[in-house]
């Protein structure tokens, strides 16, 4: 085996490994918080980008969506019960935060880590 063959194999492996890491990383970036208001899609936000989004819900109600460290939460809301704020942070595929008064749903899609269930009772 010549020096060039070894180089070729090494290069092959290196490029393969790097692309592999790159693809995997890219998929992690695919995780998003999808927001729907009254059943209609309102927006979709990258979980890897720290950001704050004001959501305008039904009847002028508002919810402040905060994305930080790959997790989404509602930090402020105009609704009386604030159940959406109490729901805390979500980051795994299929998890959601729901605000009934403003008809706002924040759902995590396309995350790497899938939850082991189809639906939650409770």
């Amino acid at each position: 085996m010549g020096k060039r063959d070894i180089m070729l194999l090494a290069a092959l492996f290196a490029v393969g490994a790097m692309l592999f890491v790159f693809f995997r990383f890219n998929r992690a970036e695919g995780a998003r918080a999808v927001v729907r208001v009254s059943g209609e899609e309102y927006g979709s936000y990258d979980l890897t980008m720290d950001q704050t989004v004001e959501i305008h819900g039904r009847d002028g109600g508002t919810n402040l969506l905060q994305i930080q460290d790959g997790k989404a939460s509602v930090t402020e809301a105009s609704c009386p019960d604030l159940l959406c704020v109490h729901q805390g942070k979500v980051s795994r595929q299929g998890e959601s935060i729901i605000c009934l008064p403003n008809e706002v749903v924040v759902e995590i899609t396309g995350a790497m880590e899938e939850v082991p269930y189809d639906v939650i009772s409770g």
Partner: peptide, 11 residues
């Protein structure tokens, strides 16, 4: 060649 082969293995 390496790039092509690498991409294939990565895929």
């Amino acid at each position: 060649k390496a790039l092509v082969a690498g991409m294939m293995s990565a895929c």
